[in-house]
Design a protein around this nucleic acid. Structure first.
Lengths: 221, 221
DNA sequence: ACTTTACTGTTGCAAATGCAACAACTATAA
DNA sequence: TTATAGTTGTTGCATTTGCAACAGTAAAGT
């Protein structure tokens, strides 16, 4: 994906974008699968935009256990403004998943205005706010799901959120059930058991990764 | 608190701030305790800064149950850029807690640059990013705590985060234990039971809202 | 001073959950 | 093809947890 078409430059013409990119002194780098891209603590002064491939944001806790905080594909963004909480002995780093290309931009270029006060620059700032806000909503959604006390309710609120987002009563899980259990922070086997109950009780219909929610008001479509 | 001293205008001189405030066409309003300030869905085009008193952000779910998403005191900010996830039938609104004063600013004034390209305006943008990022970190911290599977681990990771933040092995809970249970999304009585166990096992010492974590390496200070 | 509301501590019990372990299956790489 | 790693479904069991209920205390308002 061309950097001109990424979310950060949405609504900006090709020419304007080029001018800005030049003005921003961007850097470009390529990585191969498995490569360590950077430690998150180093990203205090720049953002990275993934224009090709995918990366993982990984937390390593004091005991050396890894957990994946996020998958970022094309158009994904990390670094300044996109922060994660860290515990005491924890480290967070960015790792290349599939061969990828990253464009780096110094964060001061985003906020500082050049003397021209170009209109397009305002647009970039707006876009950056959109991106950050979207991330917050994502976190907030996750929190919303986790605030349910039982596995059953976690599953149901997750399904409901997804259905609402897709404006549909059928959803396709974006990851494996193993990963879903991780997302919901519950034991996988216990979750499978609960899914079985939901199926048996006719509350959901599930086929592979397709899930249909059977609600009281529209069980016939 | 004077609007000039709020986080959004940090690092901006009094005069510059005045100019901007004039340029921004801010609005000012006062509310009395219990008053409904606004529905969160209306805040698509502005932000509100609390210069006096406090407000609550409240979610009402489809069954009419209320839950407090956040308390905001002086310097607190809500509206555009500060988003919350909503479920299907949920509504989110802002309610006055103690008599308060709110300054409203149209969000377009923050991102758009005026023709002067004043330095101070960049500073405001930076500050806004800081505020939003801080919120994200807060969400991320909450998520981190909730990702523990047991009540015990939730308590411990919460205590550890607090200790680290305060650079101390003693913390003072910022809310009642009832509210803590809500924050951890666990049953209050079950949590009290677990706290008792932690005390009995000598892992924590607790007196009212003061908690001391007894770790392996520094049990004597 | 009295009323009311909120907070805290406790307990019994049924139900939910994490954990461990195993087998079947799929996908991927060698 | 075989080997290897990852995913899924299942079950027994000990433990944790939510829930309901009650009593005592603290705080706040009238």
């Amino acid at each position: 994906m061309d950097i001109h078409n990424t979310e950060l430059f949405k609504g900006v013409t090709y020419e304007e974008c080029n001018k800005m990119l030049h003005c921003f002194k961007t850097e470009f780098r390529e990585y191969s699968a498995g490569e360590h891209i950077c430690d998150y603590s180093e990203t205090e002064k720049y953002i990275g935009i993934i224009t090709k491939g995918s990366v993982k944001i990984i937390r390593t806790d004091e005991n050396g256990n890894n957990s994946i905080l996020e998958h970022l594909g094309e158009n994904g963004i990390f670094g300044k403004y996109i922060a994660y909480a860290t515990g005491a002995g924890d480290g967070i780093y960015v790792e290349c998943e599939t061969p990828c290309e990253v464009v780096y931009i110094g964060s001061e270029h985003i906020t500082k205005r050049c003397s021209n006060a170009c209109e397009c620059h305002s647009r970039v700032v707006e876009n950056m706010f959109d991106i950050v806000t979207k991330k917050s909503v994502e976190l907030s959604r996750h929190l919303y799901v986790l605030s349910s006390r039982s596995t059953r309710d976690k599953l149901l609120s997750y399904f409901r959120l997804m259905c609402e987002q897709n404006k549909n009563t059928v959803i396709e899980l974006p990851f494996s059930t193993t990963a879903l259990a991780e997302y919901l922070c519950v034991d996988r086997s216990a979750m499978t058991r609960e899914l079985k109950r939901l199926k048996d009780e006719g509350i959901i219909i599930m086929d592979k990764r397709k899930v249909r929610l059977i609600t009281g008001d529209d069980f016939n479509n």
